[in-house]
Design a protein around this nucleic acid. Structure first.
Lengths: 198, 198
DNA sequence: GTCTATATCACGATAGAC
DNA sequence: GTCTATCGTGATATAGAC
């Protein structure tokens, strides 16, 4: 598990942005958290802070995009899957002391109007989640239009419930989201298990 | 409509945080946007940037909390109301060039782990929305438990869809959220119109 | 490719004249 | 209550030795 300096910088960036967003993370913090001196940050990322943030978000986004397929995969009924998904997210959040699971949404909200390079990056990540989720649910037998709607609704509801849950330090928003969304999908059968995209 | 210096500072703060979050808004920016010199900011808000942000968020949160009751009020069927709510939000967002409607969620995501005074403020605002929405739907005849669940689900879905819509610059996430949530509430009658809380 | 030292500038906050 | 000047700090980024 010998990680390169580059990787440790990106890992540190994702970890710090997960908690503080973009503007509140300083290059000095990235140097301290990664163990690399400031000079190395600019050696590996000549584009500076924006480039580091962009690559860290892309990495984190790819990992996070497998969350829905991974958690849905064991289930054969879409309603059950949805309820389990939100219950699992609620438990994870509570277990981590209501820290954010993923830096993408936090950063996206902060920079959508100001740092266009990052807005484009977060948009591509979201698009990847939506396309990947739609492809996954299509493979499990849903009609393409429903597969996409389910994915968009799940990602949106998850992100919104994450913000509420984190701020209120309560599992309620996540549990309610699952409870409200699941009935509409109860009885919708999921077909043969597909390989989780990666 | 002669606004006090204090009010113009708070208005400027809400407007800037709506676009940039908390950390990326500088006192200098608040001075420029409000027309008040730096010294006046600290005269009116001895607590500095945190105090300004807190009061601006409380003000904006109170206004924003009336959104759901106001948009739901003309409807007699909960399903119709939900679909209209998201459609209206989608149109508003598109009309404003996909700017954020409200600073609360953006700031909440950014400071939940770092500035506890603001985390508490945003939590109180969210709680106010949830309590106010639950009270509103209860007055319109829903059982209290359902009234609260509906509110939690709507606020969560709205916030999540806002982030996606703003980043993707698309109405799709808001329209899909409405389309997915509405069927579960179709046929749920809303009783006599209640006064919108304020 | 690593690391130190530093340039340049913007930050939040304060002091104090008016 | 308004406004200017400025303090001390920490920001991003660079230069250049090793």
């Amino acid at each position: 598990m010998a990680r390169s300096t580059r990787e440790s910088i990106l890992t540190a960036a994702a970890e710090l942005m997960r908690h503080r967003g973009y503007a509140a993370v300083a290059m000095k913090d990235l140097a301290a958290a990664s163990g690399a001196p400031i000079g190395s940050l600019y050696h590996h990322f000549p584009g500076g802070k924006v480039q580091i943030a962009r690559e860290a978000l892309v990495n984190a986004g790819a990992a996070y995009g497998m969350l829905i397929p991974t958690l849905v995969d064991p289930h054969d009924d879409l309603g059950e899957a949805v309820e389990a998904l939100f219950a699992q997210a609620a438990d994870d959040m509570a277990a981590t002391g209501y820290a954010n699971m993923c830096p993408v949404a936090s950063v996206a909200a902060e920079i959508a109007d100001t740092v266009d390079e990052l807005r484009q990056a977060t948009a591509e990540i979201f698009d990847g989640w939506l396309d990947g989720g739609a492809a996954y649910f299509t493979k499990r037998g849903l009609p393409p239009a429903q597969a996409r709607d389910v994915t968009v609704a799940l990602v949106g509801a998850l992100e919104g419930a994450f913000i509420l849950a984190r701020t209120l330090r309560s599992r309620e928003p996540l549990l309610v989201a699952g409870r409200v969304l699941a009935p509409g999908y109860r009885g919708v059968a999921l077909g043969a298990h597909a390989a989780v995209p990666g």
